[in-house]
Amino acid sequence: MHIGFLLPEYPHKKITTACAGIGTSSKNIILGILKENHQVSVFIYGQDCTEIIKEGNLTIHKIKKNQFKYFGFYLYRKQLNTYINKIISEDKIDLLEAVDWTGITAFMKFKIPHVLRLHGTDAFFCNLDKRPQSKKNYFFEKVAYKNATAVIGVSDFVLQLSNKIFKVEKIGTVIPNGLFFETIPTHTDVIVKENTILYFGSIIRKKGILELAAIFNKVILERPDTKLSFLGIDVPDVQTKTSTLGLFKDLLSAEALTNFEYLGVVPYNELTKVIAKTQICVFPSLAESFGMVTIEAMYLKKAIVNTNYSWAKEIIKNEETGLLEDPKNHDGFASKIIQLLDDKSLCKKIGERAHKEVVENFSIKIITTKNITFYKKNIANEV
Rank of each mutant, 00 (worst) to 15 (best):
F71Q: 13
G72M: 06
G72L: 04
G72C: 04
F73L: 13
F73V: 14
Y74M: 14
Y74E: 15
Y74S: 10
Y74C: 05
Y74K: 07
L75D: 10
L75C: 05
L75N: 07
L75F: 14
Y76W: 15
Y76H: 12
K78G: 08
Q79T: 13
Q79K: 06
L80V: 02
L80Y: 04
N81G: 06
N81P: 00
N81V: 05
N81R: 03
T82L: 12
T82E: 15
T82P: 00
Y83V: 03
I84R: 01
I84Q: 00
I84V: 08
N85L: 01
N85D: 07
N85K: 03
K86V: 07
K86Y: 11
K86D: 14
I87S: 01
I88P: 00
I88Y: 03
I88D: 13
S89Y: 10
S89T: 12
E90W: 09
D91S: 08
D91G: 03
D91P: 05
D91N: 07
K92Q: 11
I93D: 05
I93Q: 06
I93V: 07
I93A: 00
I93W: 01
D94I: 03
L95D: 01
L96S: 07
L96C: 07
E97L: 12
A98K: 05
A98H: 08
W101S: 06
W101R: 04
T102Y: 14
T102C: 11
G103M: 02
G103S: 03
I104N: 05
I104H: 05
I104A: 08
I104Q: 09
I104R: 04
A106R: 05
F107S: 05
F107E: 14
F107R: 04
F107P: 01
F107I: 10
K109I: 14
F110I: 01
F110P: 00
F110L: 01
K111W: 12
I112G: 00
P113K: 08
H114I: 14
H114W: 15
V115Y: 09
V115K: 04
V115A: 11
V115R: 06
L116C: 03
L116A: 06
L116T: 11
L116V: 11
R117G: 08
